[in-house]
């Protein structure tokens, strides 16, 4: 029974990590049809922001919840103004340019801080599920993941900004005719996606190995989750995370974490073959 509880907890935690690493990408891809290949490096930047500011004496929770999203959000704004806005409508070129950005960021961080940085340890300690120990910090990251999904959904559903964003996504010329500047909305959406990614990077910083190349470990999983989810940002990435996270954790429990990841990626490729428009391209089509 306790073992079952532990497995269940691990599955939920696996799902939460997938939500964390993919929600920022989902916002950017879902709203703007831009595939940001520097997404992993945005996560890395968020993790660095948390680690560096914590090491400089800032409270860990402030670093994670405030510093990281602001730093990466502002960086995203800069990237959108300097690179992305010239490439709207050229999907492949955006992928290539953001890939260049990703290399640039890896190289830049390596040049500035070297190949390693003193990490921060996970706070909060552990709690017991029967005879097993589980990390309380995982509970925190599950809560953040849930808050992110709920937050993005509420913003899109209930606020005026959300309404404008959805309208711009559906029909940019019509939105423009009604007095909305699509370019401004794209800029803000990109910055918002980057900020969410930064927050995720901050949350991951205490539990992941923080290094310039850490983004590569997440990028494939994040993409596959977003693409597997389909057009609806919140429902799509939520459902895809739930599906892939469960597969990953169950296979990991049976074998090793590496095989678990491989199973996740293979399952995702098969799913794209069956549902090229993602889960929400077929089911829950009217969801957000």
């Amino acid at each position: 029974m306790a073992l079952l509880g532990l497995i269940l907890f691990n599955i939920i935690n696996g799902i939460a990590v997938l939500v964390l690493i993919s929600i920022g990408l989902a916002v950017i891809y879902g709203m703007m049809r831009i595939i940001n290949l520097a997404h992993g490096e945005f996560l890395m930047l968020g993790a660095y922001a948390t680690v560096l500011s914590t090491n400089a004496g800032v409270n860990l929770w402030v670093s994670i919840l405030i510093v990281s999203p602001i730093v990466v959000g502002l960086f995203g704004l800069l990237v959108e103004r300097c690179i992305i806005r010239f490439l709207y409508g050229r999907l492949i070129d955006t992928m290539l340019a953001t890939w260049g950005l990703s290399l640039f960021m890896i190289g830049g961080i390596t040049t500035l801080f070297g190949t390693t940085v003193e990490g921060v340890s996970a706070p909060l300690g552990a709690f017991n599920i029967g005879p097993y120990h589980a990390s309380l910090y995982s509970v925190f990251s599950i809560a953040v993941a849930a808050a992110m999904l709920g937050g993005v959904w509420s913003v899109l559903r209930f606020t005026k900004f959300g309404l404008i964003v959805r309208a711009t996504m559906q029909n940019p010329p019509m939105a423009a005719a009604l007095g909305v500047a699509p370019n401004r909305i794209y800029m803000l959406t990109f910055a918002l996606g980057a900020a969410l990614t930064g927050l995720a990077g901050g949350v991951l910083a205490p539990v992941a190995g923080v290094a310039p190349g850490m983004g590569a470990a997440y990028i494939a999983k994040a993409f596959i989750t977003v693409i597997g989810g389909g057009a609806a940002i919140v429902t799509g990435s939520g459902l895809a995370s739930a599906l892939f996270g469960t597969i990953d954790q169950i296979v990991t429990f049976q074998t090793t974490p590496v095989i678990g990841q491989v199973a996740l990626l293979i399952a995702a490729i098969i799913m794209i073959r069956i549902l090229p428009q993602g889960i929400t391209g077929r089911f829950f089509r009217r969801s957000l």
Binding site: I83, F86, L87, D93, L96, A97, W99, G100, L101, S102, L103, F104, M105, I106, G107, G108, T110, T111
Partner: peptide, 21 residues
């Protein structure tokens, strides 16, 4: 040892996509 090779490759890729596609 001043610049990482990735940094230079990134600049080249970015520059070519934006300026000499």
């Amino acid at each position: 040892h001043r610049f990482d090779a990735n940094l230079i490759l990134g600049v080249i890729l970015l520059g070519f996509v934006l300026l000499v596609p």
